[in-house]
Design a protein around this nucleic acid. Structure first.
Lengths: 245, 245
DNA sequence: ACAGCGTGTAACAATCTGTAACAGCGATCG
DNA sequence: CGATCGCTGTTACAGATTGTTACACGCTGT
């Protein structure tokens, strides 16, 4: 492979300079650039293997640029940003970026990422994980998937164990739908299962539901949210509103 | 709402009869039917609110029919099958079915599901969970996501804890990509996180990586798979082949 | 070679999870 | 209407899991 050609897009001349210099020193050809127009002209005029795109570009927005580029380009794009907030990161992935790095970054990390993305681009493309960021509201309660926080109707934060959280998620994903214990277990990704057909499920789910009730039901004895469907399993008896994170 | 009209598609006349009768008794209008042609003609000639589609239809295949129907129809479809195997279930969802019931089913469960799907269709459409079913191969090892089973190159089955499994999954999803501890934690859905910016991560990830190494590395002291990237984090230093479940 | 970090790991404590056992409730059948 | 059977709720307990801490070892750069 010839020397990879990287486009370094940043509106701050100093940052741009440091990055290009650093990349040069490490064997890459780095082309500085400060606007979408610049990117387009580079793309039009020659090969570009990877774009390092700053998210904050004065009046332009890196994320939007990324989305627009993706409309007609396959070039790998790494978003660079000072905003380490997760939702920003996510916005990046959803927009088709191949990776995302928070500024200030560890130079080694930058290098590693650049190499990884280039290598990946050569093979095919896979995906970095994507994390659910929505907030769910149900019967006065809310569950913030981003921070894994559950709040009661009065705004009090409730601590759920990991398994309880997993259970809650299953219900939130299937409101008003009666689920059997087997389905719940499967959806929760139960590991300790015998293979194949006839399981002897045990009462693990029952107990877990009980514990969750104890935390998110006003009167656990007379559950309004997590209702039992006798002979079937359990239902979340509430509508769930989903808000984008 | 008027009485819901359901299409009961099954090639066995007896089953078809029982189901339609049962549904009738419970206030639905059930229309028996035994082939894709039959479905199409019903769809063409009148309203159909829901299709109960058997997966095993002699020479026809319910899953394929479902996929074809979905190409030009929005009717809710519940797949019914004697094969309770998970991958079948998944094939159902991937093909656009709204739900899936294993035969023999609890009549009450069938009713509940029918009602739920109808209700959901009225609101909008959401999705039941979807479970990953692939098998991953990496450096001689394999991870079967369906059964959560890890096998060594000699075929010996290894037991991983839930958290170890989660960690492994993160690496499998990001082969060859150096991940920081923060990213790993985030991808694993760590709950105990302070909000916002500067975390004090702790060494949990390090220890966890160590434990995983102890299970899937031949020489944990000199790891070949889970390699340390000094100053950065960890990488899975192997390519990952993914096979459909 | 030395100092300074960064990482590996052992031991510990706290938490979490599943099982078992029993009690309560509902349904079914006579 | 009452007895019985089956299913679910609840609690206690034991075992497993997980994160923390502390210390040792190995790099890195001077």
């Amino acid at each position: 492979m010839t020397i990879p050609r990287l486009l370094v897009v940043d509106d701050d001349a100093e940052t741009r300079g440091m990055m290009t210099e650093f990349l040069h020193r490490n064997g890459f050809m780095a082309l500085p650039c400060d606007s979408e127009t610049g990117i387009r002209s580079h793309l039009a005029s020659g090969r570009v293997d990877l774009i390092l795109l700053d998210v904050m570009l004065g009046d332009e927005n890196g994320v939007e640029i990324c989305a627009r580029l993706r409309a007609d380009q396959d070039v790998p794009i790494i978003l660079v940003s000072a905003l380490s907030a997760d939702h920003q990161r996510m916005a990046g992935y959803e927009v088709g970026a191949d990776d995302y790095i928070a500024k200030p970054f560890n130079p080694d990390l930058l290098l590693a990422r650049v190499k990884a993305v280039l290598a990946r681009a050569r093979r095919s493309s896979s995906l970095i994980y994507r994390r659910q960021t929505s907030t769910f509201r149900f019967g006065g309660w809310s569950y913030d998937a981003k921070h894994d926080e559950v709040r009661s109707p009065d705004g009090v934060q409730i601590a759920l164990s990991r398994r309880e959280t997993a259970l809650l998620k299953v219900f939130l994903a299937n409101p008003r739908i009666p689920l059997t214990r087997e389905e719940i277990a499967a959806a929760m990704d139960v590991s300790g299962e015998g293979a194949g057909g006839g399981e002897t499920p045990g009462r693990a789910i029952d107990v877990l539901v009980g514990r969750l009730r104890g935390k998110i039901e006003t009167r656990p004895k007379d559950p309004e949210l997590l209702r039992t469907e006798r002979g079937i399993g359990y239902v979340l008896a509430a509508d769930v509103a989903v808000e984008a994170g």
